[in-house]
Design a protein around this nucleic acid. Structure first.
Lengths: 149, 149
DNA sequence: TGAATTGTCACTGTGATCGTTACACACCAT
DNA sequence: ATGGTGTGTAACGATCACAGTGACAATTCA
């Protein structure tokens, strides 16, 4: 299945904003750090903005900013903002309704798949962008806040 | 990061074998119930066979059979057998190593993503094909075992 | 022997992701 | 105000995995 790297790249961008000293970060700089293109970053920032996680400052010296403290942005919020496909894909074509199995398999499976998805999301809800930024700083052996450069 | 429809279809096929009375099920019949093609089913059965979950009987009157009791086949086993892609996709191109964030983001993220994946898999490990078959029977208002047809 | 069924290959169509180019619009500095 | 800077979005193409189809050798039962 074609998998999306949007979630990881979005967390990357948000962590960069959290690590920075509050100065706006240009999409071009975020793209360089994540090794992708500025348009891809802007597409992600558009989704994050709609979700209320980031804001943008236009014009010279502008860029992307966190819309709220990094400690209040959960990874689950990022996940919900940038991922649109369901975790589990059901049958592409609906199964045979007349069949004893085909007519009931999706309903039998739904609570299980919902539970698995909820368990995964609960883990993502326990971690914030601030946590990730702190771990990045620890691994990189530098202190927060960091001047951008 | 979504799964393919293979997982759901594979569970569908295994549940059909569990619901049946132990008679081999042809790939063509499984395909009809799941509203897909027999070749797709055979591809899944090939993976399930390699994982030791099913067996096949060639020739006339042949078909697919469970290789062990349905109560001992966990959904996690099915998931592992038929899904190739990782739950979370990392950066398509490695992030900029020289950057404070790019050089550490993947390592900072790994424990979180591993935890989320483990939480989801733990839920899938709690349910067996026998559970699904029982739920299918309950929803379809029929008793197990069921004669095939 | 002959029919039936699996197992696997090659080819095709479809959809999503991702990269690139392009351009209108908004904002800041001078 | 004016030009440079940066965002926001659309269009296009390349790539990849998934899924569907047809075909065929190999195997096994009737």
């Amino acid at each position: 299945m074609p998998t999306s790297s949007r979630f990881v790249v979005a967390v990357h961008a948000l962590a960069a904003m959290a690590v920075g000293d509050g100065a706006p970060l240009r999409s071009e700089d975020l793209a360089a750090s994540a090794n992708t293109s500025a348009v891809v970053i802007r597409g992600l920032l558009s989704r994050l903005h709609q979700a209320g996680l980031t804001g943008s400052q236009l014009g010279a010296g502008g860029g992307a900013l966190l819309a709220k403290p990094a400690a209040r942005i959960r990874l689950l919020d990022v996940y919900a903002a940038v991922e649109d496909t369901a975790l589990f894909t059901l049958h592409r074509m609906p199964p045979l309704g007349g069949c004893a199995v085909g007519g009931n398999i999706q309903e039998a499976l739904r609570p299980v798949l919902d539970g698995a998805r909820a368990a995964m999301e609960a883990e993502l809800a326990r971690v914030t962008i601030a946590d990730i930024a702190a771990d990045v700083a620890r691994l990189g052996k530098f202190a927060l806040p960091l001047r951008r450069g």
